[in-house]
């Protein structure tokens, strides 16, 4: 991304913020719970100096990463099996399609019953939906390996492990990475949701707490922090996958910084 692109991207954002500031500041838009960007910036500045802030960020970050890792490990593992075995797909695909659209928030009372107000409860609410993007994308990636590649592997009588590591994995990697990215953003969203409606910890709870305590500036501050955290995690994952799979990003892919 060139400096010019950066400038125009940030410029657009600044115009929006200025418009918001003018509308709220002039009293044209007057709502109790909609502060101006300037007030939110002030709230954000006091918020980050509070010792509890680091704990809240740490909790949500830990819940997101643990949940995402569990979802990715299970999802890619199961996805690889389903992608390489038509028989497994025949028996499991219908169940997956039934389970996939279930709203994870509906599991909050069940999760609470099982684990109480705890990190485990949060993880259940995170892993249940974050599993599917990793699983489905990995499955599609493995199932979509071109026939000529598998034919070549068969002609060379490659061992099962070699076939997996040298043929299937490189061919399926772009799809797997997409699944991992989708899972990551979903894991963060679900961590915040689980904290808002269930486990009273982390950024999600802080957001609701400040809303109830009539601090809309802090509430929007937390919204902003969650957004930035999502951007940071996605950026790190893209950077990490570029390092791990240098061949993968030769074609331009949709990234936040590739516009």
């Amino acid at each position: 991304m060139t400096g010019r692109q950066w400038a125009s991207g940030i410029g657009g954002l600044l115009v929006c913020l200025a418009l918001w500031q003018v509308l709220v500041g002039s009293g044209f838009v007057e709502y109790d719970l909609l502060p101006s960007p300037w007030t939110i910036a002030g709230g954000l500045a006091t918020m980050v100096t509070e010792p509890a802030f680091a704990v809240e960020v740490g909790h949500t970050l830990a819940a997101t990463l643990i949940g995402w890792l569990a979802a990715v490990l299970a999802g890619t593992g199961l996805g690889a099996v389903l992608g390489t075995s038509p028989l497994a797909r025949r028996y499991c695909l219908a169940s997956i399609e039934v389970l996939r659209p279930l709203p994870a928030v509906a599991f909050v009372p069940v999760a609470l019953l099982l684990f109480g107000f705890s990190l485990q409860m949060e993880l259940l609410v995170i892993v249940a939906p974050a599993l599917w993007p990793a699983l489905v994308n990995t499955m599609e990636g493995f199932a979509g390996v071109p026939q000529r590649l598998t034919d070549v592997a068969a002609t060379f009588h490659l061992k099962r492990s070699t076939r997996l590591l040298r043929v299937y994995l490189p061919a399926a990697a772009p799809a797997v990475v997409v699944g991992m990215r989708l899972s990551l953003s979903l894991a963060l969203v679900m961590a915040v949701v689980a904290e808002m409606v269930g486990n009273p910890e982390g950024l999600g709870y802080a957001l609701v707490r400040e809303q109830q305590a009539l601090h809309p500036d802090l509430m929007f501050g937390y919204v902003l922090v969650i957004g930035l955290l999502g951007m940071l995690l996605n950026g790190l994952l893209v950077w990490g996958s570029r390092l791990a799979l240098p061949g993968l990003f030769r074609r331009p892919v949709a990234r936040w910084d590739s516009a």
Partner: peptide, 10 residues
């Protein structure tokens, strides 16, 4: 806790 409806089972 934010929502007391969730408390009886705990």
């Amino acid at each position: 806790i934010q929502n007391l409806s969730l408390l009886p089972p705990t």
